[in-house]
Every structure is written in C-alpha cells, then in structure tokens.
C-alpha cells in the first residue's frame, strides 16, 4: 500500500514539474517533449488509481499519435527564439491573473462539501481479477450506447467538415496514378523499330583474310 502511495506522489510530482516546464521552457520542441512526459505521468497516476484501461488509452492516443503529429509540426517551424521572449513582461500580469483564477476556482470546487469525504467516499479497491476494460465496455455499449453513437456521429461530421474546409483543389498539381503505373506494359513504352541493314562501305576491310 505504502509503495503505491509513494509511486502516486512520485508520478504526480513529475507531472507537475513537466507541466511547469511546458509553459516556461523557451524551445518549443522541448516544450512538446515535456508535454509528452506530462501525459505519460498522468497515465502512470491513473494506473495507480486502478484506471488501467484509460491510462493505456491515454498513452496510445495522446502520446502515441497526437503528440507525434504535434512534434512533427513544431519541428518544422522556423522559430526565432529571441523574438519569442519579447513581450514576456507585457503578458505576465494577464497570464498570472488567469493562472490565479484557475487555482482559486479549482480550490473552491474541491473544497465544496459536495465533494467532501462524506459525500464521495473512497471507492472500494477491486481484486486482481476485476477487469475494468470489460466494465467500461458494458457501460459504453450497453447502458450508454445511444449517447456514445451520437458522439461518434458528431465526431465523424466534425472530421468531414474539417477536411472539406482545408481541402483546396489545385488544378496545376501533378500526381501519379498508381493503377495506371501498375497496368503499364512493355508495348506502351518501348517501340522496337526494324531497320533494313545495309552493308557499310568499309565492311570488306574488316573481314579476316
């Protein structure tokens, strides 16, 4: 028990450190990498809270796919680091105000009696054979199947909308048609020409005597 608590605090500390580095470090690539670390520590925290399925999905989706694309973009940006520091003082009061507001809001919510130990007791720890993947599947595809399907359709519509908004047809773009490339035969490309062979004028000199 003491070990899992130690692990929880360790992962939490790493997560807070990484999150702080994301917003303070100057190099955007390093900031993105710290964000990866923050996601990963969050997944570790969830594992200690018996939410293995969500933890693995967090790693799979955010660390494995979203952040890779994010890094992909950030690495290709040509950013002038000196210009990034300009105006830091101007934005500091506003940023600080937003941060303080967020902390106060969270404190108010978490200290409310509705979230106290009396109303929300610590859940009973489950045995080793408890499968929270199966439980989650039962809830999503059983009790909440219609909200889940509606959410899926909304996401699909959003994807189609996003793609159609960014899709620009450029008539001058050249591209290959792989089907045509595969279907090509030798006769389409090579033409063998038969020429009548005439004896060269100096042919008789080369014949061995």
């Amino acid at each position: 028990m003491i070990f899992t608590e130690l692990a929880l605090h360790l992962f939490g500390a790493v997560m807070i450190f990484a999150a702080a580095m994301v917003v303070t470090i100057r190099n955007p690539v390093k900031a993105a990498l710290f964000l990866v670390l923050a996601f990963f520590s969050a997944a570790c925290v969830w594992v200690t809270l018996e939410a293995e399925f969500l933890a693995i999905v967090l790693v799979l989706v955010y660390v494995g796919a979203v952040m890779v694309l994010f890094l992909f973009v950030v690495m290709m940006l040509d950013i002038n680091l000196a210009r990034l520091r300009e105006g830091f003082g101007d934005y500091l009061p506003i940023g600080g105000l937003v941060a303080v507001l967020l902390v106060v809001e969270m404190a108010v919510v978490l200290h409310a009696p509705e979230f106290g130990v009396d109303n929300m007791p610590r859940p009973e720890p489950h045995g080793a054979d408890y499968s929270n993947t199966r439980e989650l599947g039962r809830l999503i595809y059983g009790a909440y199947v219609y909200p889940f399907e509606i959410a899926a359709i909304i996401l699909l519509v959003a994807i189609v909308a996003a793609i159609s908004l960014t899709l620009r047809r450029r008539p001058d773009t050249k591209y290959q048609n792989p089907a045509k490339q595969v279907a090509i035969r030798r006769e389409d490309r090579v033409r063998l020409v038969k020429m009548p062979s005439a004896p060269r004028p100096d042919a008789d000199r080369e014949t061995p005597t």
Binding site: I56, V59, V63, G64, V68, N132
Partner: peptide, 22 residues
C-alpha cells in the same frame, strides 16, 4: 498476465517512434 495486454502492447509500440523523431 495483465488484462488489457493487447492494448498495452499497442500503446508501447506506438512509443517507439519518439526515439526516431528525437
């Protein structure tokens, strides 16, 4: 012998790309 081992493997193999990118 964990319950979601298939997902675990998928999550970890997707981590391998970081070594290459970095």
């Amino acid at each position: 012998n964990i319950d979601a081992s298939l997902l675990y493997i998928l999550a970890l193999t997707s981590m391998g790309v970081y070594g290459v990118i970095i």
